[in-house]
């Protein structure tokens, strides 16, 4: 089992619904977020290209945050989901420094928090909150090892890219282009 997400940049409108849905689902305090939107604009008027995409932890196969965690609080759970175990986290912030995607933040309660792929929902057979809410249905989630999962199916016929591949982290959020 290897969970992953594919996000269609041709459909994402940058509405931030994924952000607020994550906040209310996961009790993320106001002022913090586990996912966010990036907008890139290239070219000069009127020949310009705009890309909008929803970003979060890349649930990397080669995760620097897991390697550098002194207590083992940062770890890989079932299906390749990268998590931090609250009770074991001492809030040192080494993982925050090591993540090339700036996906982690220190929760006001002192531990480091990040996207969990909504493990609590996925375990129950539900989609992550951000995927379930997205009005453009531009996010596909599932098991890469299952050829019939939404994510496997869409990646079969679409081109995609990952963010900061040069960092060698083997990220598992794929952007359909």
């Amino acid at each position: 089992m290897r969970y992953a997400m594919a996000i269609d940049t041709n459909k994402c409108v940058g509405c931030t619904d994924c952000v607020v849905a994550c906040q209310t689902e996961n009790n993320v305090p106001i002022g913090y977020c586990r996912d966010w939107i990036t907008e890139t604009v290239d070219g000069t008027y009127p020949n310009i290209e705009i890309e909008l995409r929803s970003e979060r932890c890349n649930h990397c196969d080669n995760a620097p945050c897991v390697r550098c965690c002194p207590t083992g609080a940062s770890q890989v759970a079932d299906g390749g989901i990268v998590i931090t175990v609250e009770d074991e986290c001492i809030g040192c912030g080494a993982c925050i420094e090591s993540c090339p995607y700036e996906a982690r933040y220190t929760h006001p309660d002192g531990y480091v928090d990040k996207c969990t792929f909504c493990l609590h929902r996925v375990k129950e057979g539900e989609l992550p909150a951000c995927v379930a809410v997205c009005p453009t249905k531009c996010m596909y989630f599932g098991d890469l090892e299952d050829p019939n999962s939404d994510v496997s199916k869409v990646m079969k016929f679409r081109k995609y890219k990952t963010l900061a591949p040069e960092a060698g982290t083997d990220p598992h959020i794929f952007y359909l282009i």
Binding site: C15, T16, D17, V19, V20, A21, T24, E25, A132, V133, C134, P135, K137
Partner: peptide
Amino acid sequence: VKIIGNDDDPHCNGRLCPRGTG
């Protein structure tokens, strides 16, 4: 704690917009 779209509703098909979620 949260507001989630009604799957049977033709106005939202189970997905609220960010303002509705918020």
